[in-house]
Nucleic acid binder design. Structure first.
Lengths: 158, 158
DNA sequence: ACTTTGTCCGACTAATTTGATCGGAGACCT
DNA sequence: AGGTCTCCGATCAAATTAGTCGGACAAAGT
């Protein structure tokens, strides 16, 4: 329940990875390609590509075509919130459809719905939470070992 | 994204309804049956039944069989949190499987996963939020239209 | 300048999850 | 004791999601 999709997971991982690379090699500003990330995390290449496409379409990352091409962050890691990432990948987020004000969700029980207002508060809280956290926090929060042997980010314990 | 299932919606509506009825007719302690709730909110009877069964199984509501049977809250509305309801209906909640400590979720990228720790903080915050809100809050919090023509449970102020 | 290689990009197919349904078992009232 | 109304578990269909395939584009290398 409330579990976010694999595409969302992949997207967050990819962004964190790209951010890390850019942070480490800030001088070189290296561009990372889909294959590199996919192999690092053992996720299907094409699926990750699709996710990155979505992120590029929403302006979170810049795509560069051709050999030596790949992706890089469109703006500073601290300016990309988790909420933005999730919305780019999975569409507008919300625990119920009736808050989107779209016409398609008429919701027959709208009239007698007793939980609409209280649930809205829950949703707003979650949204606020997801919007207060950026991919930079995902790096900083991670104990991201100081020593980085090769290319591995080994990880996390505790 | 992050949208909770219809079963979850139905369950919350039903609990709110039962709680309202019990609050109003506290003296009579009326037992409401599935059909009544289903007709009130225009939701499929059998599906709602299934949801209520799950709630009963997890000890959130008491079921009474036979004619004049139905459901009533197992404990005070203030002692039933949203998190408990969702978990009863949809299983353990969490934005990722790797926090459940179950064996089935090995997650190949566990080793190199950079987002595990930061996402855990997000999850904990959400869980805390859902656990701090009870069905009683869903009654009091709702401004629940003052004018209610037909039958109803209006009620509660505060 | 052309070919070749490697990348991003959009549409299609398969699998899992979710929504809804049906028939049976148990309990109360007459 | 019979009938009726309720809850309960298993089964089926629809929708969402995960994953795959081939084409288009751009930059190197010759």
């Amino acid at each position: 329940m409330l579990k976010l999709s694999k595409k969302a997971d992949y997207g967050l991982m990819a962004l964190q990875y790209i951010a890390s690379v850019q942070f480490d090699d800030v001088a070189r500003a290296r561009i990372v390609n889909t294959k590199e990330i996919a192999e690092e995390y053992h996720i299907p290449v094409e699926l990750l590509a699709k996710v990155l496409q979505a992120l590029a379409k929403h302006g979170l990352v810049e795509s560069q075509n051709g050999p030596k091409g790949g992706y890089l962050l469109a703006r500073n890691a601290g300016a990309i919130t988790i909420a933005q990432v999730l919305e780019a990948i999975e569409g507008p987020l919300g625990i119920a459809d009736c808050y989107h004000d779209k016409e398609e969700s008429v919701c027959v029980q709208r009239e007698h719905c007793n939980i609409r207002t209280p649930l809205r508060k829950v949703q707003d809280s979650i949204y606020q939470l997801l919007n207060s956290m950026t991919v930079e926090d995902m790096m900083g929060g991670t104990p991201l070992i100081t020593i980085q042997p090769t290319t591995t980010a080994e990880g996390v314990e505790r």
